[in-house]
Each structure stands twice: as structure tokens, then as C-alpha cells.
Design a protein around this nucleic acid. Sequence first.
DNA 1: CGCAAACTTGATGGCCGTCAAGCAAAGTGG
DNA 2: CCACTTTGCTTGACGGCCATCAAGTTTGCG
Lengths: 247, 247
Amino acid sequence: MQRGTMALSRYPFGLIARRLGGATPLPKADERAILGLPLIIRTIEASRDIVYEVGQSDHCCVILDGWTYCYQLLTDGRRQILSFHVPGDLPDLQSLHLPSPDFGMATATRATVAFVPHADLRKLSDRYPAVAQAFWREILVTAATHRAWITSLGRRDAREKLAHLFCEMYLRLKAVGLTDGYSMPMPLRQPDFADALGLTPVHVNRTLRSLRVERLVDLRGRRLMIHDWETLCAIADFNPKYLHLPE
Amino acid sequence: MQRGTMALSRYPFGLIARRLGGATPLPKADERAILGLPLIIRTIEASRDIVYEVGQSDHCCVILDGWTYCYQLLTDGRRQILSFHVPGDLPDLQSLHLPSPDFGMATATRATVAFVPHADLRKLSDRYPAVAQAFWREILVTAATHRAWITSLGRRDAREKLAHLFCEMYLRLKAVGLTDGYSMPMPLRQPDFADALGLTPVHVNRTLRSLRVERLVDLRGRRLMIHDWETLCAIADFNPKYLHLPE
DNA sequence: CGCAAACTTGATGGCCGTCAAGCAAAGTGG
DNA sequence: CCACTTTGCTTGACGGCCATCAAGTTTGCG
């Protein structure tokens, strides 16, 4: 475990300050304040619950490297993934204002995560209104993404659901500079897709094959190649507005 | 159309102040400030879009009477309902902080709605921190409800979905005093259930019948009678925590 | 009162789940 | 570093939940 800001150069933490600004960049002073936050940085193995041993959940977490997800379980063991998170994301900002979270968090890959004390985040947002605004914006975009998932789960078939998820993750990764043309990292396993889209792994497999056969996408070696972005968007009926990305 | 606060005695507006407080009631001064908000009150027919003719969407709305819902459409016309709203709800508080909404709003029944200018809400929440806190709490509970719906849509079958929706609406109506024992108003039509739960009206009909035959619930004359709350909760795997209701 | 929408039920079909088996990949421990 | 085990991938066979189509009845709005 590392403490303090020394190690930050190895992680895209400046990115977070930039991303929070969205279309309207944060003032320099606000960015500096963000970079000065005290952090506890941890690297967690793949497929582990992200437990808040640091204090009892009085921290928010920032994804620095790897993928994580939020999920809920039914008592009989059925799992539903609620959202995926990539570097630069703040998956549980809401814990600042609403105690007793209603979901769990886990790593999809080995991931490096920074924990920031609630107290420091509150001080920060009290002092820098633009930061407070940015935090809330982040929470509202999460809610908008939830709505997009509700519509996907309720009214799209398997093929359309997969296409929609690919479109969303492509733009989010592109926004943080993790794409390479139309190629992107895609470390999720077929059971992860299944639990996110309300399907079974077997059916995810068949649906992926059909997308591959039609030369729309290619998922190999933990990378996704999008061969036909326009058609993929059309199949998904994808409208990126809800992500509120700049440009 | 009515203006000002005169008409408020006819509507459960004090309720909203109380509901916003949640488990910890708002200070009296804050409640008075809420009751002093300028309002435009409208009664809208059933099955109409709630359009913001008042200015261009620089208002939030408060449901005073009747039921409304938020929805998204796919370009081919498929509809997904994202949430239902009952008296006391503030369905679009998020518009205060995030322009360009990603969903539409419509009435499920004839409904009376109050519109409050963003500017006044902002003044209010700047001046009364407890109100600001309450507004954000409201938004976060909406997000938590979205998550519960994601899990329902992804991992519950038709019968469980219906049971879960009934449990949620029962507790929400009970919290605003609109239930009568285990009986409650339920003005939604079968096509509304279908679009909320990712089903077809035909299948909703069959599923309702099976719940009725088993004497779990009875839906007649726009009212829902819950005969066996415990079993209904068990079928739905219902955990009310996400609603963050008092008590 | 008339027409549109909702409700109800039956028949049929398809998307996706379940079960199963073989194989590949990746993580674990000696 | 290799045996071992777990997890994931792939494909086939089969079944079930839910969609679609259709037609008759009822409700309710204008």
C-alpha cells in the first residue's frame, strides 16, 4: 500500500481532475486541490470484492487502473451487474451523502484503486464550488446511465443489448484515452456480460458469435475491435447524450 | 391554472416538506421556506406528456395529485418506463443540475402538478443547507430505485417483477398516507406494467391472473389489495432499504 | 351514446434458458 | 516449473417463458 501523492505520476490522476470538469474545465486552483487529496492506494486481484477495510466505508474510491463493477445479489444467488467502471471513474461518490450503500463493488480485473476520506472530499467541495458541482454532475451522469441500462434491459434483445454496451464502453474509454482507433481493451468475461445484460453466459456466447460472423465486432485476446461503428450504433439505437461527454 | 400559495391547502404540499426531511425532519424555518415557494399549478389529463411550456424546462415539478411516470423511447417506438411518481414526489430534481434531460415525463392518470422555477429552488437550497441536503438525498434515492429496477429487469421473472413493483409502490404510498390497510390505489393499466417491467400486456395479464388465483393480491377497480404481504415480499425478494423511508 | 383503449383468453412460435460435454485458459500449489 | 484445479469458452439438444397474433368482451373517455 502507498500513501500520499508521490505515486500519482504512475496513475492517470490528473485525468480525474480533467474528467470532472466535463465540457467546462475546472479552474487551475480546483485541479491543484484535487491533486492534493490524501489517498490510500491499493492494488486488488481480479474478481475480489472491494471491501472498505480503511475505516468503515467512510471513503470514496477512484479507479486508477483496471475495471471494476457494481452489483446486487438476490438471496438465491442470482447476480445483476449495475455498472462497469474504468480508470478515472468514481463509482461510489453517492456514499458521501447517502449512508448504507445498496450495492456491492468488485474488481473485474486486477485493479488499482485510490481511497479518499469523505471528510477531505467534503472539505474540498465546501471550499471549491466548481468541484462540488462536478461531483454532483458525476452522480447525475451515473443516474442517467442507470436509466439507459433500464431501457436496454427492458426493451432490447440480446444482440441489441450487447451492441449498446459496446457502444457505451467504447465512448467512455475513448474519453479517457484508452482506445486505439476502433480497438479497445475489453477484459470482461462472458459471465460478466451475462450478469450485466440479464442473459446467460451460453446465450452471450452465441450472440457474440453472430456479431462476429457479421463482421461487426471482434472480441479476442481481451480486446474488442469494432469493425463497423455506424451499424453497431444503429443496431443498439445508441444515443450517447446520456454520457454527457465533452464535444 | 393557479398561481401563488393560496391553493396549497387543497394539496398535500406540507407533505413534501415533511417527506424531504426523511428520517430527520427539516427545521421549521426550512419547512416554511418550502411552503413559500412560488408555484404554477396545473391539472393535466391522463396519458399526456408533461411538457414544460412554462419557460423552457427551467422548472422542476412536484406531483400533488395523481400518478406520473418517466420514460424513454427507442426509435422504433418501443417504450420503457423508468419510474412511477405519486403525490409528494419530485421526479425531475436532477434538471436543476444537469441540463438536457434524457427522458420524458407523462401522466398515468389525470394529475395535478406544481412547477417551481429553478432559480427559486437554487435560492432556497443556497440559503437552507438542510434543504439542499434533502434535495440531494431525494436524487440519490431515485438513483437507488433505478438500481433496484435494473436488478428486477435483469434477474427476475414476470411474477417476481410484478411482486416487486407492488411491494415498492405499496411502501411509497404508505409513506405518504395513501394506503388503507393493505389496500391502495393502483391506477396503472396493464400496458403500463408491461412497459415498466419489460413484458407485453398479454403476459402481464396472465401473470396477474396467477397472482390472483393464488390469493396473493387482487387488482380490481383501480385498487390493489394485498392479501399476503409476507409471501409477496418473499416472491419478490424485496428489501425496502433502497427506498430510505423513515422508521 | 359511440368509438377507442384496455382486458381476457386461446393458439402458436421464437428467443433465450437449461443441461451437458469437450476443450482451452488461467490461476494455485507443490 | 509442472501437476492440478478452477474458470471460461464453445457447441448441440431440448424445453420453457414469454411474445405474437387473433378475436371477443368490457371499460371508459369524448
